[in-house]
Simulated assay, not measured.
Amino acid sequence: MSTADVKSNAQTRMNKSIETLRADLAKVRTGRAHTGILDHVMVEYYGNPTPINQVANLTLVDARTIGVTPFEKKMASTIEKAIRDADLGLNPAAQGDTIRVPTPPLTEERRKEMVKLVKSEAEDAKIAIRNIRRDANEQLKKLVKDKAISEDDERRASDDIQKLTDKFVADVDKMVVEKEKEVLTV
Rank of each mutant, 00 (worst) to 15 (best):
Q95S: 15
A157V: 02
I99P: 00
I83L: 05
D62Y: 10
I149K: 03
I161T: 05
L106F: 10
D152L: 11
E123V: 11
E138M: 14
P70F: 00
A93R: 14
Q139R: 05
A63Y: 06
D85H: 06
E113D: 12
A94P: 04
E121R: 15
N91D: 14
Q95N: 15
I79M: 03
D153V: 11
G67D: 06
Y45R: 04
D146M: 10
R111P: 03
I66Q: 03
K145P: 08
P51Q: 07
P49K: 08
N53L: 08
K119Y: 01
I52F: 08
K126P: 08
A82H: 02
T78Y: 09
Q139K: 15
V43Y: 07
D135I: 08
E123K: 15
I52V: 12
R110L: 15
K73M: 09
K142H: 13
A56W: 06
G89E: 04
E123F: 03
Y45N: 13
A63V: 00
P70R: 01
Q139V: 10
R100S: 05
I129Q: 09
S158A: 10
T107D: 09
N91V: 04
I66H: 01
E44Y: 00
D124I: 04
R111S: 02
E123G: 11
Q139W: 10
T103H: 12
E138N: 15
K74G: 09
G96C: 04
A136G: 00
A122I: 08
F71D: 08
I149A: 07
D124T: 14
I132A: 02
D62P: 03
I161P: 09
K163E: 14
T78R: 11
L60M: 11
